[in-house]
Design a protein around this nucleic acid. Sequence first.
DNA 1: CGGGTATTTGACGACTGTCAACGCCAGTGG
DNA 2: CCACTGGCGTTGACAGTCGTCAAATACCCG
Lengths: 248, 248
Amino acid sequence: MLSPSQVQLNGVSCSNCPMHGLSLFGSVSPDRSNDLVVRRSDRFKVPARRHIYERGAAASMTFSVCEGWLLMYRSHSDGGRQGLRILLPGDFVGYMPSGEQHLHHSVVAVTDSVVCAFPQAELHAMMEIHADLAAQITRIQARFMASCQSAMLGLGRKTAEQRIAYLVGELYHRLKNRGLLGADTSRMPFPITQEMLGDLTGLTPVHTNRVLRKLHAEGVLTANRQDLVIHDMSRLMEIGEFNNPAVI
Amino acid sequence: MLSPSQVQLNGVSCSNCPMHGLSLFGSVSPDRSNDLVVRRSDRFKVPARRHIYERGAAASMTFSVCEGWLLMYRSHSDGGRQGLRILLPGDFVGYMPSGEQHLHHSVVAVTDSVVCAFPQAELHAMMEIHADLAAQITRIQARFMASCQSAMLGLGRKTAEQRIAYLVGELYHRLKNRGLLGADTSRMPFPITQEMLGDLTGLTPVHTNRVLRKLHAEGVLTANRQDLVIHDMSRLMEIGEFNNPAVI
DNA sequence: CGGGTATTTGACGACTGTCAACGCCAGTGG
DNA sequence: CCACTGGCGTTGACAGTCGTCAAATACCCG
């Protein structure tokens, strides 16, 4: 769980924290959310490469991403890791229903990030009182599940090129839906290493690199450590078979 | 959705239907569940190979499996399918939070099955009143999600042999936890084709066959179309890296 | 008994992994 | 200011798991 060296931002206004906004309390009337939850949450700075939690940790807190990119993954006995999802501002993670003991995955910060932490017990208590909060959590879970199933289809059936194209397209739309793209809508922030991209797509870093070079050579995209430019969006969607309107 | 040729079992007692028992209403006090839901549900016979619903169908009903095995999958543009999960008696499927329009996967009966259907709208209405029902659904979703993530790790990082060993181990424990094993606890029902097994593990039927033959040659298991005998359980768990106590 | 489905096996090819080396770049310390 | 260092990206050669194609066999059910 969060180490003592974390910088805790007590008393900082959380008004722009997504968990207090769109994601979780979107459907809860404002007076309720102000009343019952806001004062109980804390903001943390999480430097790049630091974990928020690792597999086996007690499920005691739920986190909302305010700033930065994080990687949710599961590790394999041979040391490899399978990326489950990139977490963007507005996502929340670490929620477990009451009765569940510990988490089955790990979350590490890709960039310097800011997250907001809520005690699980209070969420559970709130869910008993406010049906709309429970419904909202269920809705988030369901969308995440649909996304996982798209990923499973990719891991099991798609080629390396298709998987990478799909992932780029998915990230692009998730960023776009949150207003996290700049004026140049063909350019997106892309702060993940090729190794992480390989983790997410079930590929080795070496092969990930080859595919990126191929996509570049074909004029589809250009990627570097800071950002990624999509030169041919329709072709990217075509390669990745990206036709899912329900991106979150 | 269910075709007209479905045999509907109106008026049949549903007392042994898992959705009315363990899975969904386990935490709801009996008077409530009898009062509000039981009378609204219908039982259907679903013959092997028939779909309960296919991708894109409106999310209007939630189903509970009473008898039989079903396959939840997602199909790829090349015609291949990626299996997401085997559904066993006691599982439920097709639930979508209110506001979601349609389902992103398909469900087909592997064996002749009996399912129980509930209108989504009523579940949503109930969740607003009964917090324990909402909590139960959230819990089921979370466990299913953990299972999906194990599958993702397998699809992305494990060898064919590991994936198959893991899947067999998982099914074995799920059956055991529900009391669906016979007296001979090394023998489990196994009514799925090798092609379906390949769908679930991201392999071709041909390669699936080779792996099964190899596991047989090594004295780990013997499979046929009816059942599967595990000769060396500890080795099976070892190969599949099956160490997850939270199987559902 | 016959036809369709499922399993099994072989030969071959390809996508992807492994191993290794090199270049690039940023941060660091002398 | 510059060499040093570690992380990341890039490329080549080679190996292997797994997919594809094809055919034969076994199995199930009408």
